[in-house]
């Protein structure tokens, strides 16, 4: 017997030995339990929850306001190197172009071919799109894909992300239903890496003193457009 078969035989026996006759529970359906929703104003709820988690939210109406918001964050940090992911609002707003014109050192995925990791490590600010926002928890959801590397929202000390109002989901449950083979059998699998970001990187390992930015970005800015 291979170690795998022996392993599974042992578990199977243990399951049988431990199951109480007539009391093996079926897989429960959740119905509506635990669903919080976002109330009447999901944008406000998102911004409030994000603030609770230590992030900063902005609601803006046009591309000029987006640029202004980004520029003020960049200037506050005296940041030089800006890393951008691709597609979505970033392309729609022609952000790489506008930021270059404004005099910043901009790096897009098109600029780096040979060793992107070094560029990722050296950036001061990362700007991304988002996959979704979750109002209930103030969460930014990132889905890894060729246009959206994991590193852009992770390695730079400051993360700015752009979202559309329509990308806000009320509740955490809504997000998981999007990828769930059980809820929607014809859906594709979840992406290789789905990341839920709720506030800036935090540690309390020394005397419970809250310190941000120990590993991930110490600042999280979310710009909600429209």
């Amino acid at each position: 017997m291979s170690s795998r078969e022996a392993f599974l035989t042992r578990v199977k026996q243990a399951v049988a030995d431990g199951n109480r006759a007539g009391a093996v529970p079926s897989l429960p359906e959740r119905a509506g339990v635990g669903y919080q929703g976002a109330g009447s104003d999901p944008v406000q709820r998102f911004i409030a929850e994000l603030a609770n988690a230590g992030g900063k939210g902005y609601v803006v109406s046009d591309v000029d306001a987006v640029m202004q918001t980004i520029q003020s964050i960049v200037q506050a940090h005296n940041a030089r190197r800006i890393l951008l992911s691709r597609g979505g609002l970033i392309d729609q707003f022609a952000l790489p172009h506008k930021l270059k014109d404004a005099g910043f050192d901009v790096q897009t995925l098109d600029d780096m071919q040979a060793n992107p990791q070094e560029d990722f490590f050296h950036a001061d600010i990362g700007i991304t799109n988002v996959h979704r926002l979750i109002a209930e928890t103030g969460t930014v959801v990132m889905a890894s894909q060729p246009n959206e590397p994991r590193s852009v929202s992770l390695l730079p000390p400051v993360h700015i992300c752009l979202a559309e109002r329509s990308q806000i989901l009320p509740d955490l449950f809504n997000l998981f239903d999007l990828f769930s083979p059980t809820a929607t059998p014809d859906r594709s699998l979840p992406p290789s890496c789905l990341t839920l970001i709720t506030g800036p990187s935090k540690t309390g390992d020394i005397e419970l003193k809250l310190v941000t930015g120990v590993h991930g970005p110490g600042e999280l800015h979310v710009i909600v457009c429209g």
């Binding site: 890894s144 890496c193 839920l196």
Partner: peptide, 22 residues
């Protein structure tokens, strides 16, 4: 008491074709 921890990383398999990290 947090609603969620700061990072929830949900990994489904290794890096996919076209991805530059992972």
């Amino acid at each position: 008491g947090q609603t969620l921890s700061v990072y929830t990383t949900i990994i489904t398999g290794p890096r996919q074709p076209g991805e530059v990290d992972g």
